[in-house]
Design a protein around this nucleic acid. Structure first.
Lengths: 194, 194, 194, 194
DNA sequence: GATGAATGAGGATTCATTCAT
DNA sequence: TATGAATGAATCCTCATTCAT
């Protein structure tokens, strides 16, 4: 149960690899155990059941993901720069962890509604970070002050998510990080020829 | 195999209902057969396998969905109005078919990557429609002429998709269609306080 | 679900054989299916689950067992002769079905409390038959009229059950049926040297 | 391995409690260890395996049970009074230890045939006591001298066992000890209206 | 002696698909 | 065409036992 025990982390890492390699439905507990170098039963000393492994994978990885972003945007001067940094960090981190990208963008979406609910809980802090950037931007006057925050958040998250999913499904054949500027420009300036 | 036979349509309709009611993983072939009023084996006279039913559901329903949108935007004057119409139609159609919305936004996403690949093929014409609006907009000068079309398409589709998913997950407690204008404004004008 | 289908009976018979041969805990569903000459899944067209097979075994076999006894004692003149007949039939039937004897006296007793409760329900009619013999005997004056019926029933059933179990555990090396007269004499006359 | 070590007895007592509380199949070694206040592995310093614990429970408890009865009947004048005393002690001891009654009458019967064979060995001395009472009774002339000893023993033991089991299954809602006289009368006088 | 983390074998059940009628 | 009884592969988890410390 101790999350600092080395085996806990071994199993989490093994789970990411196995899911990325075999896909969600072909990821048997025994495969994860084998890859982690432990016995099947050992898994259950650290995780309640299979679903708990998957949730934990998301918690651990997404937790780091969000932390990284939160830290990175801290010392940016204004909301606009924070948004750019968030986009860059979002793309960079997934580009650096292709396996994680496959797991989060494709495999984990096949999970059942209960698991997806848990995943949404984990995602919440990320959405909150986005919300606070929008709010800050409105206060600073760099964003319009009439923005509907949930809707804007859905636009930002939806755009990033779709962009990454597209990149994963195109087998990562182009440079995701390079698109950060352009995505940022689109989100802030819109399509219109002003 | 004739797609105009009444049983073909019966099975498609039954599948949508069963999936919406029971969720993806609890949608057994035998349930669909029962709801359609045919024997289990009859299903296999019209569909190759279970996956084929689900793809066909998407093809049929998405085909209608895209056709409606294509027709609706035809006589709109410029790309900007076409985009607004597309957003309104996208929202309107899903709001009018809550079962279909549940199936496309939540349940079918639990399917395996192979099925999702097929689903993407079906979506292709929709993405092409979006692309052509963007192109037209650039030609007309209502959109910037420097736009990266795939990226813009991903922003538009990602935003619409995330907005609808959010609405479904919030149990459709608010009016989706009313958000069309604001979504359109966000996409065209962006966040920036120009 | 139709109890008259040949496969239902095939599976019941196979279950008796498998349990008698392998013991209760080593009786996997797949073994029963194999012995019955059907696929594993076919079992579940006729039985809700494994426990249901076992209960059904008991119901079918015990039902026949009790019916035989009920018919046999019908035309006996008085309670005393009915009791003797019941003892003889009880011993005869189990002696003729050694596998069934092993299953009822040893294997099925290892079952969980829920199953044992069901088994008791099945046994109820047998106990009722014993009760009615006792009552009749009291009315006829062949038995004392002060008997405590439940207690007497427990003595009769306990004695028969223990006698059969002992015979099974001694590997059926002696003639069980031959003991019927003596058991009957003991039950009616008691130990005392009057 | 020393049976006088305090931990040996702790584990035996813990086992009785755990089995009575949780039932045979839910009595894991780890639960017994916890209740006994020792580590799982410690169990195996005192017992060969789980079955050995259960046999030891029976040996210890049944040993005391039989000793008590043996001592009690010693100074009774004749076989008839000894039999009555045996019945009274049998009922009294189980009535005073409801947990033990549950364990011996219900839970331990779920064990496998191998364990039940061991249990029978433990029961042997008790059956011998019964045998000697019968023999003595025949010599004294208080019992018929034509009795088939094993059969009579089976009647006596079967009746007591069934009576106690019935009492346990009726959730001990009536007074077991009060039935001793009547059971004794039935066994000695029989059913017949002489 | 004592610990407790680690081991790994073992089985009921579901459901997409087939095929004899 | 249509039926629906029959098929059989596939997997999570428990828990008695071990053994390095």
């Amino acid at each position: 149960m101790n999350k600092n025990r080395p085996k806990y982390k071994q199993i989490i890492e093994a789970a990411v690899e196995v899911i990325a390699e075999n896909g969600y439905h072909a990821s048997q507990v025994s495969k994860i155990a084998k890859k982690a170098g432990v016995a099947d039963g050992t898994i259950y000393l650290y995780f309640k059941n299979k679903e708990d492994i998957l949730i934990s994978v998301f918690e651990e990885k997404m937790g780091q993901f969000i932390n990284q972003i939160t830290v990175s945007i801290q010392d940016k001067q204004d909301a606009n720069k924070k948004l750019l940094e968030l986009i860059q960090m979002h793309f960079t981190q997934l580009a650096e962890n292709p396996q994680l990208a496959v797991v989060t963008q494709l495999e984990l979406r096949q999970s059942n509604p209960e698991l997806r609910l848990e995943i949404n809980k984990v995602l919440k802090p990320y959405l909150t970070v986005i919300d606070s950037i929008i709010e800050e931007g409105m206060k600073e006057g760099v964003f319009r002050n009439s923005l509907n925050i949930p809707l804007v958040r859905q636009m930002i998250f939806g755009t990033l998510d779709e962009t990454v999913t597209n990149w994963v499904m195109k087998e990562r054949k182009y440079d995701l990080v390079k698109q950060a500027y352009e995505v940022h420009a689109l989100l802030t300036e819109g399509l219109a020829n002003s």
